[in-house]
Design a protein around this nucleic acid. Structure first.
Lengths: 223, 223
DNA sequence: ATAATTATTTAGATTTGCCTAAATAATATA
DNA sequence: TATATTATTTAGGCAAATCTAAATAATTAT
């Protein structure tokens, strides 16, 4: 079995790989796991010995097959717990991350199988991030940022890109939530800001391009 | 905050105190936390320094007020999670202990408050053990062992003393469960064995004194 | 291309929790 | 009560994960 710390390193590397780059730097990992770069080097050696990563001095890191599996499994657990915390316990978007960060390390396959079933095998967590299935497969939705939506085509909120509590609290306060309908009425050339109608509210809302590109949506009818 | 290990030591000491003795021995703790006595001595010094226990060389240990609080809190969490695992996720009696042992160390007061509420503020876990409230108060029931029940007085199963999986699986197989009604028809002088009717079944059941004294019951009407 | 800067690794220590072996105290037995 | 046994503690070490400071490699800028 892997230690909690090892799991956190693998998760960090996975997240960095997800963001684009092919080779991950020691410093980037250090920032994510909140530790000194020297400590990261130590851990990378250890993970490489266990064949969880591919690592050569000064050359950066990638995940091996088994390392990726561990990382995806942690992410699956994290997102299932987040879903539980929001849907069953009534937490709000911005409160669940730290708790899920602890729960994701509980070791019991039976627990996750049953939790998944109890929750109705959800496909996405409360932020709209996809939840991989038990084989580690993501059933990704075809979401696009709200900033890219065509005027007068109804869409549904399916997720967010920015996960910072401050952003999530802003959305919540303004009435945005997963599943809500949006109709974009106008996109301003000058600053790409968006004027829209949010289901449940009659008043037009105006949001900046910066906010719009952090909200993910799906055209209403799409399968 | 206390480490997971510290919490487990405090829980072990609490459990031993619960079983009667006033002063707890190093060896007894070592057996419960599955470690060498010498390691226990180390930890006792540490806990004493933090004022979580009262400890003097060769004289055994008791919990301080704050130590007891930590222990009871862990027990509260453990039992709430057990309740969750059985009632919501459908685990059976004998499967939940190890998982709850991990979950009990998750640190979030809000989580436990909400979980407690979600579960309907249960007063006892799936084994019938009382769940302390948020102030650490146990609302103990007036249970008696089935072996002490008067003939022809209907009682309800409220708990067990023996927690071993093997015993729990036996009960489950035989149809005994929390909340089931029992009517004792006869107690044999010779070996104190019990003949009874279990609600749901028409056939008389016979159990040994040893089994009967490990099943806790409550007279049907009692408040 | 050389120098300066930044990133990474090595070296040596620290902390936590654990171990074994040896020493000492407490308890039980003869 | 003296001795044997058992329990507990001390001493010295180990492994995991971390740290700081120093050394080295890679990158960027001149």
């Amino acid at each position: 079995m892997h230690s909690l710390t090892e799991e956190n390193y693998l998760k960090a590397i996975y997240k960095l790989l997800e963001k684009g780059e092919k080779k991950i730097s020691t410093t980037a990992i250090a920032a994510l796991v909140e530790t000194a770069p020297a400590s990261v080097t130590d851990m990378l050696k250890k993970l490489a010995e266990k064949k969880l990563i591919r690592y050569e001095k000064y050359q950066g890191v990638t995940l091996s097959g088994s390392g990726k599996k561990v990382a995806v499994d942690i992410i699956r657990k994290h997102r299932l717990w987040e879903f539980f915390l929001v849907e069953k316990l009534g937490f709000s978007w911005d409160q669940v991350h730290d708790i899920a960060e602890q729960l994701e390390h509980i070791k019991s396959e039976a627990l996750i199988t049953r939790l998944d079933h109890f929750l109705g095998n959800p496909k996405a967590d409360p932020h709209g991030d996809p939840i991989p299935d038990e084989h580690g497969v993501f059933h990704a939705l075809n979401t696009i940022p709200l900033s890219a939506v065509t005027v007068n085509v109804p869409v549904i909120i399916t997720g967010v890109i920015d996960h910072r509590p401050v952003f999530l609290r802003f959305l919540e306060k303004e009435g945005y939530a997963l599943g809500k309908k949006i109709l974009v009425k106008e996109k301003l050339e000058i600053d790409q800001s968006v004027t829209l109608l949010l289901s449940g509210s009659k008043k037009l809302k105006h949001i900046s391009h910066d906010v719009a590109r952090n909200i993910l949506v799906l055209p209403e009818k799409t399968k």
